[in-house]
Computed example of a mutant assay.
Amino acid sequence: MLLGFAVAHSGLAALRPWGETKIGARPYRVLFALVSLPLAVALIAYFIAHRYDGAQLWMMQGVPLVKPLVWGLSFISFIFLYPATFNLSEIAAIAKPQVHLYETGIIRICRHPQMVGQVIWCIAHTLWIGTSFTLVTSLGLIAHHLFAVWHGDRRLANRFGDAFESVKSRTSIVPFLAIVQGRQSLNAGEFLRPAYLGVTIFVLGFWWAHPWLLRVTGNIPW
């Protein structure tokens, strides 16, 4: 399932320039969503239903401070995972979807925030659950996102050329590295925008719905 999602998601991303010339930007975004979203939902549901499968490698759930650590890491992971949702009208194909070259906000911290968010999420959930199934799933997710780092940079380089190379020289894949090296600086005002409040509300809502999601996915007969 992970391999199928990776091929579909990254493959459609690679074919975007060609696809948009054939059917247009909005229809291609709709096609991308119709393929990617069902696969992602199925992956999430299957993971929740089978998270305790396999061998129990460790059990940290009773250790003091582990639970708040896991929740804290999970919250931070979503802050990194969802900066792409800032342009909701483009994601929903209401406005014409475009490829943007960003160098503000969280991109100052890391050029590939979704990869960082996924790694943090995997660390938190693997620590909490501790099964071989969760470990293998996390390794697969991280592998896909590491591939997406190379794949994303390659697509941006092909599209923007020297402009991307300039941004690349001032940003880093490793969080905060470009800032430490003096190639980049933080601007706190760029984080004071409604989108970050929206992500925070989403995370709190997801926490509230967490028990319900566990019950619903547990009833799926697979």
Rank of each mutant, 00 (worst) to 15 (best):
F191R: 02
L88F: 07
W128H: 04
L15Y: 04
I48S: 06
N187S: 12
P68D: 13
K22V: 14
V203I: 14
I123N: 01
K168F: 14
V63I: 14
R159E: 05
R155G: 08
H144P: 01
V180C: 05
I173N: 03
N187D: 12
S36I: 05
L31Y: 05
A157S: 15
R170E: 11
A124F: 07
M1E: 02
F191N: 04
K168G: 04
L192C: 08
N87I: 10
F176Q: 15
T126M: 13
F133Y: 14
Y82I: 13
L213A: 15
G24D: 00
F47H: 13
M115A: 12
F191L: 00
L57I: 13
S172G: 07
R193T: 13
A49W: 00
H145K: 01
T200A: 09
L12R: 03
Y52Q: 12
G54C: 04
K96D: 08
M1N: 11
G198R: 09
A13Q: 05
V216G: 00
T200P: 02
S185V: 06
V35Q: 01
G205R: 02
H145E: 02
M60P: 11
P221W: 03
G4V: 06
I129F: 08
I44E: 13
A8I: 02
F78L: 13
G205M: 00
W18M: 07
R155N: 05
E165W: 13
E165F: 13
L31V: 07
P175E: 06
H210W: 11
T131M: 10
G54R: 10
F47M: 14
S138F: 09
G11C: 01
L15V: 08
G24K: 01
I173S: 10
L88P: 15
P68G: 15
P83Q: 08
G54M: 15
G62S: 14
W207L: 09
R108Q: 10
G182I: 03
Y52H: 15
I76V: 08
R16C: 05
A157Y: 10
K96W: 09
R29P: 06
F80L: 08
G198I: 04
S89T: 12
L57E: 04
L81Q: 06
F160L: 02
I76N: 11
N187T: 07
R155D: 06
T104Q: 10
T217C: 09
W222N: 09
P38Y: 00
I79A: 08
P27C: 06
W71Q: 12
V149N: 00
I107V: 10
S36R: 01
P113M: 01
A92D: 14
A148W: 00
I48D: 10
W207H: 13
Y82K: 12
V35G: 01
N87D: 15
Q118V: 05
L197F: 12
A25K: 10
